[in-house]
């Protein structure tokens, strides 16, 4: 079983990418489990036809003690039997989402989920930046042996990526989490690929794959599908399959060397690149 976490700036396409990787690997007859670690609870919706899952936290904490909870209460099988579950969390503006991730993972431990379903790949799709201890839980607890950071070439996305590396380094001495690579989910900013290549070199990581921007992704999402399911013959689907195969073969496990914040901004200034979305977008 390989346990992999996907991190990245909010809205960068973590769930979309993760779901497509899950779908692509399931087509290769691997057993896949995808766990959404985001209070929005929408990580797996493209694998489940767009339906909203009963989340782990909803199930456990809203239970009135009138019946025994079963793992099946918060787990469903989606596209090609991909095992889907969502940690869940509070409504915006209340409660503690970070604590929610911790609690959800504790619940998964209690239910011995991984041994019970015995997946080949477990994917944790984690909310945005590593803003607090809760969102570092998959790293701290050793669930995320491989981490892939999804980013574009935009400044704040790179900044988030660098911050995530800081979180990984913090636990690298005592934990098993390492960086498998950076996945560029293109926003078509200027010099995006060379910038990412340089960023990867500077941070002792590698640029694993580049996903071009394609509206087919959004069209499929509207139907609650991955590109693998909704447009299997498209170039974009082929791109996700290629990414999935790279992940299968990827042996890199890097401890990143993130830049300090002033160093990061100095680098941005030195490069002088636009880092803006191109006009035709």
């Amino acid at each position: 079983m390989r346990q992999i976490a996907f991190y990245g700036k909010g809205g960068i396409g973590k769930s979309t990418t993760t779901s497509n990787i899950s779908a692509a690997l399931s087509d290769l007859d691997f057993t896949i489990m995808q766990i959404g670690c985001d209070p929005k609870s929408d990580s797996t919706k493209n694998l489940t036809g767009g339906i909203y899952l009963n989340t782990i936290l909803d199930t456990v904490h809203n239970n009135k003690n009138d019946r025994e909870i079963k793992a099946e209460d918060f787990i469903i099988k989606g596209y090609n039997n991909v095992i889907c579950c969502e940690a869940g969390g509070p409504e915006p503006g209340v409660g503690c989402a970070g604590r929610g991730v911790i609690t959800a993972i504790q619940v998964l431990q209690d239910f011995d989920i991984f041994n019970r379903y015995n997946p080949d790949f477990v994917f944790f799709d984690v909310l945005g930046d590593v803003v607090c201890g809760g969102f570092a839980m998959p790293i701290r607890q050793g669930y995320a042996e491989e981490i892939y950071v999804i980013t574009s070439g935009e400044i704040m996305s790179l900044f988030a990526c660098n911050n995530i590396f800081k979180g990984i380094v913090k636990f690298a001495k005592t934990g098993v989490s390492r960086v498998g690579g950076i996945i560029l989910n293109s926003r078509n900013t200027e010099k995006e690929v060379p910038i990412l290549e340089e960023f990867a070199r500077k941070t002792n990581t590698n640029l694993l794959h580049v996903i071009p921007r394609d509206n087919i992704v959004y069209k499929c999402e509207i139907e609650g599908k991955t590109v693998i399911e909704g447009a299997p013959d498209s170039d974009q689907a082929q791109c996700y399959r290629a990414l999935a195969e790279k992940i299968i073969d990827n042996k890199r496990r890097d401890i990143p060397e993130p830049m300090q914040t002033p160093e990061f901004y100095d680098w941005i200034k030195q490069k002088g690149f636009g880092l803006v979305v191109m006009a035709n977008e």
Partner: peptide
């Protein structure tokens, strides 16, 4: 308890 911490205690 846990419910209030996760989902808010107001």
């Amino acid at each position: 308890g846990a419910n209030e911490i996760l989902f808010g205690g107001t």
